[in-house]
């Protein structure tokens, strides 16, 4: 069990011991969605531009009715990295995030054009199976949204939906997800109590556990900490940093410090355009564009 509990270690330690693993050596691991080219690149080489993209976006336009929310956006999101979308309100960053797993299907007036690929899935194609897409691309929302069920049933929701799975396997899967989301120790004795009894931070980690239980390759996070207190925020940020080892994470945030803390790469959105995109350190310390500099130094936003 000791190896399992090391999952709860603080960020600083994770950064140090982050292994540089060859994925192909892992018997249980899934092949990454792209080609094997990504194998062998450790997460610590964060400024490597040759990374295999998990999400490819090219000339992407998004609309709500007549209003154009995104203009010809082009972006490559590398796998097993944390990519942050920053920018002032209404700049289109959430819109892009919600298009990646077609959450915008729910909005009647929303439509989009251009190229948006997740692995080998053409997201915008009519023939795309949205259920498959969303199983591969999980999402966590701003407000913690546990279902009004028990903690166990919350995590088991997705697997029950998608997998032919027996009870014992499901028990193990729930345990795995909760451990992965660093929540297991806090809830293992009350798995069958209502999820509404958890604190806000715990609820948000439960939502993350729920999202990873179906084995997505990509996790989208729409301002996951904006409804949480600072202590809970720190725990969720730690968690994001740990999950990066295994998942491609895209996070929308209003909080520039958060972007700087958790992300490897940052894209700055302004009025529906991507103004600048690059390695986080560079975007924050040596931005190429004037607008980016103004925003990260707090002149507007």
């Amino acid at each position: 069990m000791s190896t399992i509990e090391s999952a709860g270690s603080p960020v600083s330690r994770v950064r140090k011991i982050m292994p540089s693993r060859n994925i192909a050596d892992e018997p249980n691991a899934h092949a990454p969605m792209g080609v094997e080219g990504a194998a062998g690149r450790g997460p610590e080489k964060m400024n490597d531009e040759g990374l295999q993209p998990a999400i490819e976006i090219e000339n992407f336009d998004a609309f709500y009715g007549d209003y154009q929310a995104l203009h010809r956006v082009t972006l490559r999101i590398p796998e097993r990295r944390v990519t942050a979308f920053i920018g002032p309100s209404g700049c289109g960053k959430s819109t892009l995030l919600r298009w990646i797993n077609r959450m915008n299907d729910v909005v009647a007036t929303a439509r989009a054009e251009g190229k948006l690929r997740v692995g080998d899935i053409d997201v915008l194609s009519r023939s795309t199976n949205v259920v498959d897409l969303r199983r591969n691309v999980g999402i966590v929302f701003q407000k913690p949204t546990p279902f009004p069920k028990s903690i166990y049933d919350n995590v088991a929701y997705g697997p029950r939906l998608h997998f032919k799975i027996n009870a014992a396997e499901l028990d193990n899967l729930v345990e795995w997800s909760l451990k992965k989301a660093a929540l297991w120790d806090e809830v293992k004795n009350r798995l069958h109590q209502s999820a509404h009894g958890l604190s806000g931070g715990q609820q948000q980690r439960l939502c993350i556990a729920r999202a990873i239980a179906v084995g997505p390759k990509i996790l989208l996070m729409d301002e996951p900490c904006s409804a949480l207190d600072p202590a809970s925020t720190a725990r969720v940020e730690d968690l994001i940093f740990e999950l990066r080892e295994q998942f491609t994470i895209v996070i929308v945030t209003h909080n520039m410090h958060q972007a700087a803390r958790v992300s490897d790469r940052t894209a700055f959105f302004y009025q529906g355009h991507i103004v600048e995109e690059g390695v986080t350190d560079q975007v924050f310390t040596k931005p190429k564009q004037k607008q980016t500099e103004d925003y990260v130094t707090g002149k507007f936003g």
Binding site: M103, V131, G138, F147, P148, A211
Partner: peptide, 17 residues
């Protein structure tokens, strides 16, 4: 609340699910 519906959609549930 709509957030519950979105959460379930985000898990890959069909509308009826």
């Amino acid at each position: 609340p709509n957030s519950l519906r979105e959460a379930a959609f985000g898990m890959g549930a069909t509308r009826w699910q």
